[in-house]
């Protein structure tokens, strides 16, 4: 069995939390948006492209979580290359994962609900598309905050560089 340092194992947990919760939020959000879009497309075929755009928006949270998870795996030495992390850095890595994971969960769900509502508004009135996109983009900010804090934690917590 490969020997893994305690800090590296903690970073692995952080990576799991990052993609796990961000993916959960993103998946729920996309599911909600997709359910609304399917209803809209069933009534109006022309809604397909716009439905896809709204459904794709909550994907970003999973991408942030995925990126952070990859960075944690690479810099903790789990994917080969660098040396293992000490326990302190490992605990920071758990914080990194929690930061993007939970922020992505809330952001993804919120964005999905806003997207489903916007699809309903657009199918009712075409002119609502641009405003719908703006409203749907707003819950993205929470994921961006989580992503920034995760990067800062990695930089100043001794994981990156």
């Amino acid at each position: 069995m490969v020997e893994i340092a305690l800090g590296t194992a903690l970073a692995a947990i952080g990576a799991g939390v990052a993609i796990g919760f961000a993916g959960l939020g993103s998946g729920l959000g996309q599911g909600i948006a997709a359910a609304g879009s399917v209803g809209a497309v069933a009534e109006d075929n022309d809604m397909f492209a716009r439905g896809i755009i709204f459904t794709a928006l909550p994907e970003t949270q999973a991408i942030y979580g995925f990126l952070i998870a990859i960075l944690l795996l690479v810099f903790s030495g789990l994917l080969g290359g660098g040396k293992g992390l000490d326990v302190t850095a490992g605990l920071v890595a758990v914080g990194v994962g929690a930061s993007i994971g939970f922020a992505g969960l809330g952001s993804g769900m919120g964005q999905g609900i806003a997207a489903a509502s916007s699809v309903g508004a657009v199918v009712e009135d075409n002119d609502m598309f641009a405003r719908g996109i703006i409203f749907t983009a707003l819950p993205e900010t929470q994921a961006i905050y989580g992503f920034l804090i995760a990067i800062l934690l990695m930089v100043f917590g001794g994981i990156l560089g």
């Binding site: 599911g31 909600i32 359910a35 609304g36 809209a40 309903g120």
Partner: peptide, 18 residues
């Protein structure tokens, strides 16, 4: 989510008709 989910598809359909 469980409260909202059952209404997503019907709402999109009725809003299109509205």
């Amino acid at each position: 989510v469980l409260d909202i989910y059952p209404y997503l598809l019907p709402n999109a359909k009725v809003r299109a008709r509205k």
